[in-house]
Design a protein around this nucleic acid. Structure first.
Length: 263
DNA sequence: ATGGCTTCATAGTGAAGA
């Protein structure tokens, strides 16, 4: 007699653009959706100011790696995380952008890819070097952890359909050819975009500028992604963007992305 | 639009985000 034990895992990513400002939105969202794992970017606070108590009251363990003013990542989970690690090994970086841990047998990597500013900026060089280091490291992690999720704010829109006006954005940061090639290279090592495993509505985006009433006018970019290892991709049962938090007062400019896995 | 918000910071001709 064979016993099947199916476990569903709901994993999300959300750039909150200041965890201090967005904490009420986050705790409301956790209560409404009960995700098992949430990768958070742009906490913008030092570790000593991390709202661990509020998140514990909300029912979540938290790993965090922050700094003053900028960047900062966290992983929230219903069950305790194991083997937590900060950053990309071998990459000297004072900016807190990567956190990884194992939760329920799944290796979770939370990433906040650099913005890049523009093609002429030194920040663009930093972004491209950072992405190369990420790719090299993830190649090894894929071999080490067959069940791997890499979720976060990639600051890159992969395809024209991920940009509200591809012509306008063709030479702009987030949609330049070298950035798109760097994201495509992650597909080359086996990582699959969970969102495109399913039919999706047109004009599906995860970020909208605060200016120009961009959200209301559907002028956005899809730059937040959940990438899955080859072993996990067939186990993914859904992937959606939740635009509701973007409608709230004082919203984050990013919306959460949620994937469900049948493990 | 070479910046129209928003955040954190400081009191800047702000910086940075996306």
């Amino acid at each position: 007699m064979q016993v099947w034990l199916n476990v569903a895992m709901k994993i999300a990513t959300w750039n909150v653009n200041s965890l201090t400002v967005r904490l009420p939105h986050l705790t409301d969202w956790l209560a409404a959706h009960s995700p098992d794992v949430v990768c958070i970017q742009e906490t913008k606070l030092e570790d000593k100011k991390f709202p661990g108590d509020a998140l514990r009251d909300a029912g979540y363990h938290a790993l965090f790696s922050g700094q003053r003013t900028y960047n900062g990542v966290a992983i929230l989970s219903r069950t305790a995380a194991e083997n937590a690690m900060k950053g990309i090994p071998g990459l000297e970086d004072v900016q807190q952008r990567v956190l990884s841990a194992t939760i329920g047998g799944v290796r979770v990597v939370c990433v906040y890819v650099p913005n890049g500013e523009n093609l002429e900026s030194p920040k663009f060089e930093y972004k491209m070097g950072w992405l190369k280091a990420l790719q090299t490291w993830l190649g090894g992690e894929l071999a080490r952890y067959p069940q791997l999720v890499v979720a976060g704010d990639y600051n890159i829109a992969p395809e024209a359909r991920d940009v509200h006006d591809p012509e306008l954005w063709s030479a702009k940061i987030h949609f330049t050819p070298p950035e798109r090639e760097a994201l495509h290279a992650l597909a080359g090592i086996g990582l699959v975009d969970a969102f495109r495993l399913f039919d999706q509505p047109e004009r599906s985006y995860t970020w909208w500028d605060y200016r120009m009433m961009a959200f209301r006018r559907k002028m956005g970019l899809r730059i937040d992604h959940i990438l899955l290892s080859p072993a996990l991709a067939p186990l993914c049962t859904s992937c959606t963007i939740d635009v509701e938090p973007r409608r709230l007062e004082r919203p984050s400019d990013h919306a959460p992305v949620i994937a469900e896995l049948a493990l």
